[in-house]
Design a protein around this nucleic acid. Sequence first.
DNA 1: TATCTGATATACAAAAACGAATGAGCGAAA
DNA 2: TTTCGCTCATTCGTTTTTGTATATCAGATA
Lengths: 297, 297
Amino acid sequence: MSEIEPSWDFYRTFLTVLKEGSLSAAARDLGLTQPTVGRHIDALEGIIGFQLFIRSPQGLTPTEAALDLKPHAEQLAANAAALLRAATGQGKTVRGTVRISASEVIGIEVLPPMLAALNEQHPDLVIELSVSDAVEDLLRQEADIAVRMVAPAQDALVTRRIGGIPLGLHAHRRYLDQHGTPQKLEDLRTHRVIGFDRESAFVRAMRKRVPLLDIMRPTLKSDSNLAQMAMIRAGCGVGVCQVELARRDPNLVRLFRAEFELPLETFVVMHETMKTTPRCRVTFDALVEGLLAYIGR
Amino acid sequence: MSEIEPSWDFYRTFLTVLKEGSLSAAARDLGLTQPTVGRHIDALEGIIGFQLFIRSPQGLTPTEAALDLKPHAEQLAANAAALLRAATGQGKTVRGTVRISASEVIGIEVLPPMLAALNEQHPDLVIELSVSDAVEDLLRQEADIAVRMVAPAQDALVTRRIGGIPLGLHAHRRYLDQHGTPQKLEDLRTHRVIGFDRESAFVRAMRKRVPLLDIMRPTLKSDSNLAQMAMIRAGCGVGVCQVELARRDPNLVRLFRAEFELPLETFVVMHETMKTTPRCRVTFDALVEGLLAYIGR
DNA sequence: TATCTGATATACAAAAACGAATGAGCGAAA
DNA sequence: TTTCGCTCATTCGTTTTTGTATATCAGATA
């Protein structure tokens, strides 16, 4: 193995080949040609001293070693993208790209109007919305700003607590007409309940705080909150969703208003290195303001 | 501003110029030549669309924009280094470089014998010891393994709790001969006490747990635990240090054995992406074993 | 003042990287 | 089977990048 450090561009090429699965596809993606990409991989393999891919006429299949390096390369790409975002829109004007990460429900049901208003106000602002329930993307610089349901423990982050978004039990009017409206919590045992597929950390925590959830044995399961919401709207059964969202649909009925209300703590978080850029400040403030209004101050 | 993404190598060049302060110095550092480095900066400035440095016959002074980009570039460099470390020593053999981060006292007083034994056992292992009290270097990939005094909240980390390293009040025999041995805790008011310069988060937390610390008004201050330890050894006064370390010096006397003992929780932490590499496993295990032995099981 | 040492900028030649074109292998569909 | 579409490998000419050498400027020192 040679002692010289490889060109950082090789890492980018490596990652692209890993993602695309072939030299040709990677070349198209990178705006290079297939021989060049092949040479990059050759060079990288030469420097680090072992094989990264097994070549075949069907493409390149990564070796185990290559897969071990993948997360590193991905992080490198995320950082490079973050640097470029930080570079664009320097100065006092609000322009450039800001990447927002939010959970599915928030990102799809709640944020779009706010983002529309924001974009109206700042036409040169490009907003990227990453909808995912993965928590760790801020530290990996995969986003500049995130809307989170857990308090961030990291101190390299600028955090603003919004408050609790109330969750409630809901069902569609049509469902209740057919199956009857449960009067006591115990009645839920005989109802169709919409719940989580796997026991995530969040679900376990929620179950701990609200023991009555144990009564509800879900017969319709999905890990996607959005899918659960859709099932509730479609009249599949009884499920948990945001009170405010349910109120928008006049056919959705809230059940056990007194017995069941779960506040979902919400935070807007920004990476510290981004707090100087005007567009991040503006977006951060807009999200905070919008979400505060959403939960009713 | 052009639409093409800059070569990632430009970022490396940019960071080096930022650190070295001149094109020539950066060129020496990178193994390139001054015109090449200059061209890289020119190209990068052209792509991102604003000036990064003000050129002068004395060197290059970074603009404010360049300083804003610095942390990103540093992180990029850390990730690239981590990738390279992950790449070297693939396979089942224990070889390559492992970077360990530890606090000053641990890194200088406790770890070296363990690392010596480890290196004896694995001659092809290169050990880098980063001695610093900064906490966040694991996430930034500035180290592969860290010895920490706070429980890591991140779940991308492999954590092993060691236990509490006992801290105690100590003074040098010579100091006590001259100034007398304090009998009651209140006597400390009239003694020379070695303490912290600034009120760090750690100090505040400690003060909360052990109110009697308020009695001690330090007259000799340092933020470096190592310097505090040195002052105790030099007979400057009464201070807090690890019981085990004090025991090594027969001239150090422990005070208020019954009233004052503070366990310092200790953890060995490893980045998840490193847990497959043999050298990280081996080092991790050696640190865990060594530290467990150090605190007496 | 003259000189030496650091710096950046420029001109031109050498070296390296790249792209276009071509050949060949494999698998799916006609 | 034949053809088409996808792939990787190789060759060769060209473009791009880099290095060498030199000019120039600013500050420290004798």
